[in-house]
Design a binder for these strands. Structure first.
Lengths: 112, 112
DNA sequence: TATCGTTATATTTGTTTATACATAACGCAA
DNA sequence: TTGCGTTATGTATAAACAAATATAACGATA
């Protein structure tokens, strides 16, 4: 059979979403580019949407996830904090483990 | 810390969604009530939405998941097939296992 | 044949969500 | 001081999605 099992996971704190797959993707692209606007462009989403996502992350998190600077040499930019990097890495680790776990569970469906 | 990890899983076949949490909930309520319209009312969704969900399930599945009859003694009704019942039970089993797995993975976040 | 509760489906309305556009502030550098 | 690319934010438009309404067909039963 050609069944596939898919999942989306996210982490909440105080009934607010802290991290989901979209937010993690955005944070990774910020890490790559050093800029929120470039990250948004690279992901094909509007700057405004990206800004709201990042704003929500930083408002939910107990420690800052990014440092945003405005003005200056290259106009400014956005950098991940050490805490932000660890969060991203841990989320991706959990997500990957979840996929593996589910792929193994999928046998139950295939054997119907 | 008060972190929570949440998830949604679904099963696809041939790039179409076969089963997700909403569809399984609907199927369970059909099983309880014997009727699509009663199931929709009980879940607080419109009959049309429920009908489209069920239609999508039966179109994706390789064997019928429900038997729908129209007219007759009580106007008709909808019953789960044996295959449908097994699908529902297996999905819920996998979902429960997934939650337990993720709760255990959550420690990684709590220990940052 | 008329009634009833259901499945099945189209059309319209409304609500939420995403996009597009526009503008201001910032701070370095030429 | 002017220009530049960025962050930050508001407002208006568009698109996607959900809900409400309406109607037809069906088949046992009275």
């Amino acid at each position: 059979m050609d069944y596939k099992i898919k999942s989306r996971i996210w982490i909440e704190t105080d009934n607010k979403v802290l991290l989901g797959e979209g937010r993690v993707q955005l944070l990774k692209e910020i890490q790559n580019t050093g800029s929120l606007s470039k990250a948004a462009k690279s992901l094909g989403i509007s700057y405004k949407k990206a800004w709201h996502l990042l704003d929500a992350v930083n408002k939910s998190a107990k420690k800052p996830v990014t440092i945003n600077s405005v003005g200056g040499k290259n106009g400014g930019g956005t950098q991940l904090t050490a805490y932000g990097k660890v969060l991203v890495a841990t989320f991706e680790d959990i997500n990957k483990n979840c996929w593996e776990f589910l792929d193994q569970q999928l046998e139950k469906i295939e054997n119907l």
